[in-house]
């Protein structure tokens, strides 16, 4: 007699493609969030630096909230809260917004650190040469500050890329969600999580290596 009906099927080549597609989605959502979050973060970091008392009384506590609350809670809260205020957002949009704000909160303090890394006497020297505030910012503070905080920023970016796995709770089919789907079907968690891990590694490693190269070039 034939054994009981089999609901499970093994890991197939198409599944690898399915995971690859999901990896692209992970790359997409984290890429957009990191880019937008960094731009916002630089703006916030500058406000924190220049705004002094006002910014530390208003902006800083808000950023602290986003930095301190676990991302998964922010995602679930925002996803359920958005319809209440009349926003109809799909999981991708929701995830992108939350990840962007989270990245911005982390990047703001990194960016402020970058501005602070440029000594005041050096900035006075550039102003004494007739540079305007923004010329000093663009040609002196930015290149020196970026070099100083680059490793910290890479840390933030790689962290956000990995944290983007949490968007899976909203049902967005990125790497982790895709893995869960496949595990349910194949009952081969070790294999599939190993493959998913390899995809994450493949996304992070080139970034880390590129960052190392860049740092080496700067420190010549």
């Amino acid at each position: 007699m034939e054994s009981s009906l089999n609901f499970f099927t093994g890991f197939k080549f198409q599944d690898l493609l399915f995971l690859g597609e999901a990896a692209v989605r992970t790359l997409l959502i984290s890429g957009i969030s990191i880019a937008a979050g960094t731009v916002l973060g630089v703006l916030f970091g500058w406000l924190l630096y220049e705004g002094r008392i006002f910014a530390s009384a208003t902006l800083a506590p808000v950023l602290d909230v986003f930095r301190s609350i676990p991302l998964i809670i922010q995602l679930v809260l925002f996803y359920n809260f958005a319809p209440i205020i009349g926003l109809s957002l799909d999981p991708f949009a929701c995830g992108t917004i939350v990840l962007t704000v989270y990245t911005a909160a982390l990047a703001a303090n990194v960016a402020r650190g970058g501005i602070e890394a440029v000594a005041i006497p050096l900035r006075r020297a550039s102003r004494s040469l007739g540079m305007t505030y923004w010329q000093d910012m663009i040609y002196v503070v930015a290149p020196i500050g970026i070099r100083a905080i680059f490793p910290a920023w890479v840390g933030v970016a790689l962290g956000v890329m990995k944290d983007s796995a949490l968007v899976s709770v909203l049902g967005y089919i990125e790497l982790l969600k895709a893995s869960q789907i496949l595990i349910t079907r194949t009952q081969e968690p070790f294999l599939i999580l190993a493959v998913a891990g390899a995809f994450y590694f493949a996304l992070s490693f080139p970034v880390a290596r590129f960052a190392d190269r860049l740092e080496q070039r700067w420190s010549q």
């Binding site: 006497p121 050096l122 006075r124 020297a125 550039s126 102003r127 004494s128 040469l129 007739g130 002196v140 020196i144």
Partner: peptide, 14 residues
């Protein structure tokens, strides 16, 4: 300030 070149105690090279 273009008229007033300034040299500091700390040399402040970029």
């Amino acid at each position: 300030r273009r008229k007033l070149g300034m040299v500091f105690q700390q040399w402040n090279s970029f």
